[in-house]
Design a protein around this nucleic acid. Sequence first.
DNA 1: CTGAAAGCGCTTACAG
DNA 2: CTGAAAGCGCTTACAG
Lengths: 343, 343
Amino acid sequence: MNSDHTTIYDIASEAGVSIATVSRVLRGETNVSPATREKVQQAIERLNYRPSSIARGLTSKTTHSLGIILPKLLNPHYAMIFTGAQEEARKLGYTMSLFPWASLDTDAYNPAAMLIERRLDGLIVCVEYSPKDHDELVREALNTLRRYMPVVLIGCVPPWYDFPAVACDNAAMMRRIVQYLTRMGHEKIALIGGVKEDTDPLRRDVGYEKGLADAKLPYTASYRVFGKGTAEAGKAALDQMLDGLKREYWPTAVIALNDLVAMGCMQSAREHGLGIPEQLSVIGCDDLFCAPYLTPPLTSVNTRQQQTGARAVQLLLSGEQKRETTDWELMERASCAPVHTGI
Amino acid sequence: MNSDHTTIYDIASEAGVSIATVSRVLRGETNVSPATREKVQQAIERLNYRPSSIARGLTSKTTHSLGIILPKLLNPHYAMIFTGAQEEARKLGYTMSLFPWASLDTDAYNPAAMLIERRLDGLIVCVEYSPKDHDELVREALNTLRRYMPVVLIGCVPPWYDFPAVACDNAAMMRRIVQYLTRMGHEKIALIGGVKEDTDPLRRDVGYEKGLADAKLPYTASYRVFGKGTAEAGKAALDQMLDGLKREYWPTAVIALNDLVAMGCMQSAREHGLGIPEQLSVIGCDDLFCAPYLTPPLTSVNTRQQQTGARAVQLLLSGEQKRETTDWELMERASCAPVHTGI
DNA sequence: CTGAAAGCGCTTACAG
DNA sequence: CTGAAAGCGCTTACAG
């Protein structure tokens, strides 16, 4: 291992100049004579010199490294966000490190310490709502971290958060989805997943209720089941709803928090002998790569995750204190159909 | 922003000791009197001090940050590897940054420069075979990088690579899969995906041919289609095979390079009116989260990706020059069945 | 057990 | 246009 890297001193003596001059050509300053610049560049080439970003960071007070906190990478939704953020960071010369909430949660000592010690130039935090435990952690961690580095939020934006963020207007999106279903004649529309205590003003429940109201439909508590954003949770939730309701009250459409939940719901429907979309329309969210390959292909909402990640990096680095709302698009596939009337 | 962080000098004067002493308690050295240690710790607490890993890195010649190069994160297979690696790194006090091949490829200047300038303590490289262009890049990049930092390989291990690695024995795995199918009576077994020029001694093709030989079946060129590891490529490949073959020669089983390819194959089969598994058995690889939710649930091979990632980090940090082979497990689901004989 | 001093590899005023 | 010098915030021998 070449742990004794070439240094700026080596280049300086090789080129017969001072380290200040080497530093100047390194940083592309203009006030260097062409001849000198050439000499230095040759030396760099010859010795295969790469400046240490560590030493550079110590003086320049900037590390060119960013961090991102995500719930988990195993849901492709977050992998898309991460990819978008990472690529944008890369383009701008920054490195991106991942810090999953889970590892912070389980950490005995100050969860933020590792981030602070790294002297990151900025941090993207992606919040997924969950009750109490997590919310408390999030709030505390955010309040600490933002004293040390710029923070941009992605995903849910808690009402107490007054910083730059890029989020999807889940309320508007959900209202549109409900509308999509009511226009197909659905009146018994279930919503599965999410957290009851969610206080994000743009949360799905707001839009769900608005959407129902738009169509003059009542809000039916038994059609609203909360739960985690996993396939297992989705299946369990729909199982429970169907098993607890007389058949005549079964929903004709179910909106899932995300595609994983939708997958679980499809499974549950299948096991209950419900044809999709004949007897039950299902719609997901996130538009995961597998949505088109499910049977039937799952209608979902593309929330432009990569773009969201990239935009968060831009906000982070530009220092703009904006709060932005992302685009989304309903991807119509075969899992939703007009409500089946008659027998 | 608190960019003027508290330094070791602040702590020293606050505690009335020298910075050397502060450094000692920081690093948990034992040769410090309890009283002094206490004073220092109090000062640290009071001033909310976090040592700079940057300054520390400059002297200690170690950054406690690792890198991982992956083909892409959007295939959950790689997200699992990354997650396993990241979590293990975290446990050991290391940070993990992602560098996708794509961003290195498209980079005009030396693709390795960014990694070297970061002075990473180690690098995990996950290689996915693809012809020419990529292989040349991989070889060159690896040869440069390993002069600057320890490198551990994951995935395919090119024959010219003589370094630590943790890989799946794809040959043994594939032989076992073929056996699984021949025991169910299949004789026309297709293999879809991968690169013809692959030279990894553990590559799938080796096992495929062995498996066929085990059952005294001929190798049939038209059952072997190469291609990318995407669903689209999988669909196109099977489409092409079926369309080019008389119905009586259609395979009764298809092995896909990975689950994405398998998903594409299932789609193709469906469009060709082939029931799965009645007329066509399909088996994938990687055991993605969605495999159980496909119709029918996809039989696949779990290759313990998270464990692989974690193990790679351990090798990297221990400096062992071992080459390890990972476990794998056949996950039997409903997409494979005994060959349909008679009408 | 503790401190003074040098050094890690850069950048940044400050002179010239 | 170029160099000498100080400084970034730590760690590490070296004395005592």
